[in-house]
């Protein structure tokens, strides 16, 4: 019984605190993938290549909000390589800046969610959301294989 309790405690600690490196890479890639799909919809809409749809805008922004909130925690020190990651070592060299960019991204997305209620407000606010993508990818992302 004692051993079982010990085992359960160990497992629960792992579950709460530790993210396995391979999992972290897979999870952050999945989040980024969803972000990409959402961003693509928003971007096409801002260009007018697909029609404006407030419900889609809000759903896409919520996807981005979810990504912005969860992604920064998925870069533990042991997840620098492998799993097809495109993350650059610069992330771990500039962790404070990296995290600050996600905080700003979260804030911009939250603001967009609050402000956008029609096509005009969408077109005004969307570029502020998009500018976050490039800044981070330039410094912290490159395909390595």
């Amino acid at each position: 019984m004692k051993r079982l309790v010990l085992l359960l405690m160990t497992l629960s600690v792992c579950g709460a605190g530790g993210v396995w490196a391979a999992d972290a890479i897979a999870q952050r890639r999945a989040l980024m993938h969803d972000d990409g799909i959402a961003a693509k919809k928003l971007f096409d809409m801002s260009k007018g290549t697909i029609p404006f749809d407030l419900a889609v805008v809000q759903a896409s922004l919520k996807t981005l909000a979810n990504g912005a909130e969860k992604t920064p925690a998925l870069f533990p020190d042991d997840s620098k390589t492998g799993g097809g990651t495109a993350a650059l070592p610069a992330i771990w060299q500039n962790k404070p800046d990296f995290n600050a960019r996600f905080t700003k991204f979260s804030k911009d997305v939250a603001e967009a969610l609050a402000k956008i209620n029609d096509e005009a407000s969408f077109k005004a606010v969307a570029p502020k959301v998009f500018e976050n993508c490039g800044g981070c990818h330039e410094l912290y992302k490159a395909k390595s294989s």
């Binding site: 998009f130 993508c133 490039g134 912290y140």
Partner: peptide, 18 residues
């Protein structure tokens, strides 16, 4: 704009090129 058809944004040195 840097946006690719799959919703990614061109990164690394290509961002400056864009």
């Amino acid at each position: 704009s840097g946006f690719t058809p799959d919703g990614d944004v061109l990164g690394g040195g290509m961002a400056g090129v864009v």
